[in-house]
Design a protein around this nucleic acid. Structure first.
Length: 472
RNA sequence: UCCUCGGUAGCUCAAUGGCAGAGCAUCCGGCUGUUAACCGGAGGGUUGCUGGUUCGAGUCCAGCCCGAGGAGCCA
């Protein structure tokens, strides 16, 4: 009889190796049901797929009464036996066990946090070390991996280079939000912190000889490689020290930021559309099992929504036209609509959900509400910025064509009271072989929320960091 | 940070200011090629913390801690 050692549950469920093969599987018990016919049914998960493998353990096994009948949710076991077509409903294949070995017991079955019945996501956050054993968090982990790999694959196949931009940054420059300070000065011993003659903290004596922070964006750094390698992206963790307490914000989250040279805003929008459709198509293709679960238990519309997203062309509208449409909508908004305002979520939602009814790219925002590095349009009032708004979630991507003209950039720095000396290397890019270039940022966690219908961003990252919370 | 709601058994939740309850889980028994199995029984509580009002507080009051939803900020 053929014997394949240590087969993943996912392979078995896909029919590899075929029925009749003798295999060993390894994993954790999800449920155990005993039958008077002299059998126990064990649903075994190893995380490789959404569905478990059913192990049929006959009472002839030597450890049947002493161990198998005592298995509870969470026990780790290995089982060896022959794959057979299932006699029962609910699964095509099952393992007829000739041996079941307990690798690790649950020593406190009643107190084991992961139970078969519903538990709240709030509770599961308190046991983040065990929650990947649940259906939902396991599915999220696989979805997260699938999207991450699709991101790399999309760029790699198109000749983009992955640039490892730094996590620690001393350019207090990105302007994307409050930053976490990085320091080796001894905060626990305030008297030992070096001071300058006027009584301020002397950061020249800190580790980097200057103030340093956790990055809020790799964009400025990745632009330097863009102007050498043409097509680049950065993908990694970013940090915001904002005191945001919402279901859509994390202090530590993952962001993808491509940057393309010889490109304008239209090319940037094209890239964003092609990119989003690629990674979400990959999700539908590769994680159909998990997506079916999300549609069944979390958000019945999620598959339809993602399918519509990847097939419908993105609408494009200028900020000015969007404001005009909002003004003519006849709707009363909590925040009144006027040209020059930063759009509120209620406005973005109306645009994508009621007016366009599709993903929409809003372009050319007033310069007053956008960052210094965004390229000035010829009207002198707007900049070449774009946001991709998705029905049901709002802003999913923010991007822009960057200002490649040094005189324009310096004027913007002055307007925003920023010190050009701090940006010396960023300005150099405009002095030495400058070219039009553009890029955008996509939040990985928000993409997962959008695709799965999960209600809280803290449940789509393994170990969420939020104000007051950095357990695990 | 602001507004609103919440914190009771391992989990999900009840309980008019008057005996601390149910379902699931756990344990025991029954039944069954079972599928969130089913049926019967048992054990399981410092009601988030500190103070106050009251004959009496899970319930009312104050402060604090924690969580959720919404807002702002944004990805």
């Amino acid at each position: 009889m053929p014997h394949a050692d240590h087969v993943d549950v996912s392979s078995v469920l896909k029919g590899t190796p075929p029925a009749g093969t003798r295999v060993t599987v390894r994993g954790w018990v999800r449920t155990r049901r005993d039958s008077k016919a002299g059998l126990s049914f064990i649903h075994l998960h190893d995380g490789s797929s959404f569905d478990p493998l059913q192990i049929v353990a006959p009472n002839a096994l030597p450890n049947y009464e002493s161990e198998i009948r005592k298995l509870t949710t969470g026990c780790a076991v290995t089982a060896t036996g022959t794959l057979t077509a299932s006699q029962g409903q609910g699964q095509a294949v099952e393992l007829q066990a000739e041996s079941v070995t307990v690798v690790g017991w649950v020593d406190d079955p009643e107190g084991y946090p992961i139970q078969q019945k519903k538990t709240s996501f709030e509770y599961l956050r308190e046991v983040a070390h065990l929650r990947p054993r649940t259906n939902t968090l396991g599915a999220i982990a696989r979805v997260r991996h699938c999207l991450s790999m699709a991101i790399h694959r999309y760029f790699h196949e198109r000749g983009f280079f992955w640039v490892h931009t730094p996590i620690v940054t001393a350019s207090d420059a990105e302007g994307a939000g409050e930053m976490f300070r990085v320091s080796t000065l001894d905060l626990a011993n305030l008297g030992a912190i070096p001071k300058t003659h006027d009584g301020r903290t002397d950061f020249t004596q800190d580790f980097f000889g200057k103030e340093a922070f956790l990055t809020v964006s790799g964009q400025l750094n990745v632009e330097t490689y863009c102007l050498a390698l043409s097509k680049v992206y950065t993908f990694g963790p970013t940090f915001r020290a904002e005191n945001s307490n919402t279901s859509r914000h994390l202090a530590e989250f993952w962001m993808v930021e491509p940057e393309i040279a010889f490109a304008d805003l239209a090319a940037d929008a094209d890239l964003a559309e092609s990119f989003l459709k690629y990674i979400l198509s990959a999700l539908l293709n590769e994680r159909a099992d998990d997506m079916k679960f999300f549609a069944d238990r979390i958000d019945k519309d999620c598959i339809r929504r993602v399918e519509a997203f990847v097939t419908s062309p993105f609408e494009r509208v200028t900020y000015t036209d969007a404001i005009a449409a909002l003004e003519k909508s006849g709707k009363t908004f909590e925040f009144p609509v006027r040209w020059g305002m930063d759009m509120q979520s209620e406005h973005e939602r109306w645009l994508s959900e009621e007016y366009i009814k599709a993903p929409v790219v809003v372009m050319n925002y007033p310069k007053e509400i956008k960052a210094f590095y965004m390229r000035m349009n010829d009207d002198g009032k707007t900049v070449a910025a774009m946001d991709v708004l998705a029905p049901g979630i709002g802003e999913i991507i923010g991007g822009s064509q960057r200002e490649e003209r040094l005189d324009y950039l310096d004027r913007r720095l002055a307007e925003m009271h920023l010190d050009p000396k701090v940006y010396w290397w960023y300005r150099d890019l405009r002095r030495y072989g400058t070219v039009p270039h553009a890029g955008f940022g996509l939040g990985l966690e928000r993409t997962i929320i959008y695709a799965t219908g999960m209600g809280n961003i803290r449940d789509v990252i393994p170990f969420p960091r939020t104000p007051g919370q950095a357990a695990f």
